[in-house]
Design a protein around this nucleic acid. Structure first.
Lengths: 201, 201
DNA sequence: ATATTAAAGGGAGCGATGCTCCGTTTCAGG
DNA sequence: CCTGAAACGGAGCATCGCTCCCTTTAATAT
């Protein structure tokens, strides 16, 4: 694979040196602030943390979604790539789907407010929603189809609906011991299995 | 039952006439604005719509949650009271639970951003969350227990977790034909039934 | 009816935040 | 070293939440 991806792998390619440096600085600063204050943190704070002006951030990342996307790009990518991997290695397609959802949920719940932002009707997050969908929906669809094909779950569930449902279930304060999204997601998967028994194909 | 409830049925009892009038004015104005702009609508806008100053709203409803609660009080109450009713009239406890959840979901999805606000980590909505829980959690628990008791669903699911899950699934834009929270909730209920067969009676 | 007074009202004002505009600084190539 | 363009920084404007304080008004006493 060539080192220079075609699309938007590294938008700082060919730019001035200080621009590239600042881009990185902002990215790490944002990552730090996101951990403590969530992805809703004021741009001012991130700018201060990075020691740059606000305009610099807006220049590199026109919308908040762009910044969030850039910060978590690697993890999202990893999640996307894990799909086919799991499908190949897991005991069954349903098992693969389960594991993949686990990965996805782990990713979401460890980022304060990320799940909230994903389903927010705030226009600033529209492209974030779109990016997640573009990248992860095909993976989910593949796993879902495989599990349907193997007869482990009932057909008829749309990947978009499943993903958004999972995302929605991860919304909210994560410090409440009374609520664990994983339990409900397990219930959802149980429901997906319907009343089918281990049918011989 | 006496017409004057003890607690907070009508906080304007005994107040000055103009105060009671304004309270009503604000309430209807808020209801209108909520429909068009969601429960996150700027207080300024509601004040303008009502033709009063902002302080008037804040005096009657110290927090946003108080205003939202007051606007939807009747409907929440109706939902709460429908629980025992359904349990008495439905074919089975599970059927009652299903119908009650339908009511709850109908209520949530028709109020723009209400579900969002309920699970928001915004402090302004903390008491809203609390109010819903106080009023509806016991009802949900009763229905859930009855359905467990009748053997229609598996035990072990906590009412809080179920209610919050349902609320979460109702979050987000409601104009997307690809996403219908009801389908996922049906799946969730299917999962609650575990591996028991549909109904042999 | 008028005066009194406490409750209620109204909106300017403060702080926070999103986002932009424009003068200034800095890099990179000649 | 010089110069132009790219990048930078923060002041500035708009919006919103919430409060403070002065004005208005309703209920009551005289």
């Amino acid at each position: 694979m060539a080192p220079d991806s075609p699309a938007e792998e590294s938008p700082s390619r060919g730019k001035r040196a200080d621009a590239q440096r600042n881009r990185q600085t902002v990215l790490t600063a944002a990552a730090e602030v996101f951990v403590t204050s969530g992805v809703d943190a004021p741009i001012r704070r991130i700018a201060a943390q990075a020691g740059v002006g606000m305009a610099t951030i807006y220049r590199h990342f026109p919308t908040r979604a762009d910044l969030v996307t850039a910060v978590y790009r690697h993890q999202i990518e990893a999640c996307a790539e894990a799909g086919p991997d799991l499908l190949a290695r897991a005991e069954s397609p349903l098992d693969a789907l389960r594991r993949w959802i686990d990965l996805f949920v782990d990713f979401l719940v460890t980022k304060h407010g990320l799940a909230d932002a994903l389903q927010s009707d705030d226009d600033r997050f529209a492209t974030l929603h779109a990016y997640f969908l573009d990248r992860l929906l095909p993976v989910c669809a593949q796993l879902l189809d495989a599990a349907v094909e193997s007869g482990e779950i009932r057909p008829g569930t749309q990947p978009y609906e499943l993903m958004r449902g999972i995302g929605n279930l991860c919304i909210g304060r994560d410090d409440d011991p009374r609520y664990d999204p994983r339990r409900l997601i397990a219930l959802l998967l149980q429901g997906l299995q319907g009343h089918q028994r281990p049918q011989a194909s």
